[in-house]
């Protein structure tokens, strides 16, 4: 099975660590060159560096048509939303997961049928303060 991840941060690292033992061939496409090099070394996987603003070309280069799962995990809600919808509606990817930190956008795109994840800073703040207060 093939999985494509857009975005490269600690979450990406954790998801790769989970997916590879489950038999997924993972490819990562992102803007962050240094982080991609680190991932390549750590997990021996293909990565694609985005060098300009026309991201859809990079999705096609990443063979998005033939992946079983697309995870839009960058920290940019707007780009995550657009790419996730492209994967779902233009490339018919079976499983699409989209990270959206903004709670209102999160709610709207859930209603629109995207599978969304994400915790906003305000939610994290509440969780942390609740823990501190016991």
């Amino acid at each position: 099975m093939n999985a494509l991840i857009f975005g490269c941060d600690i979450l990406t690292d954790l998801i790769i660590k989970y997916l590879q033992p489950h038999g997924y061939n993972v490819t990562v496409v992102a803007y962050e060159q240094d982080l991609l090099i680190d991932l390549e070394r750590k997990y021996t996987l293909p990565t694609i560096l985005i060098k300009d603003h026309i991201i859809q070309d990079y999705l096609q280069e990443s063979n998005v048509k033939n992946v079983d799962m697309f995870l839009s995990l960058s920290t940019d809600d707007h780009t995550n939303v657009m790419l996730a919808q492209e994967a779902k509606h233009l490339f018919d990817v079976k499983t699409v997961i989209c990270r959206i930190e903004n709670p209102e956008l999160n709610e709207i795109y859930s209603e629109l049928g995207l599978t969304v994840i994400g915790k906003s800073d305000s939610q994290l703040y509440l969780e942390i303060t609740n823990l501190i207060e016991g």
Binding site: M82, I108, E111, L112
Partner: peptide, 16 residues
Amino acid sequence: RADQTNLIACQIAKQA
């Protein structure tokens, strides 16, 4: 100037 922002503004306009 950002396509993704324009798309999202239009989708919120319709959905919400």
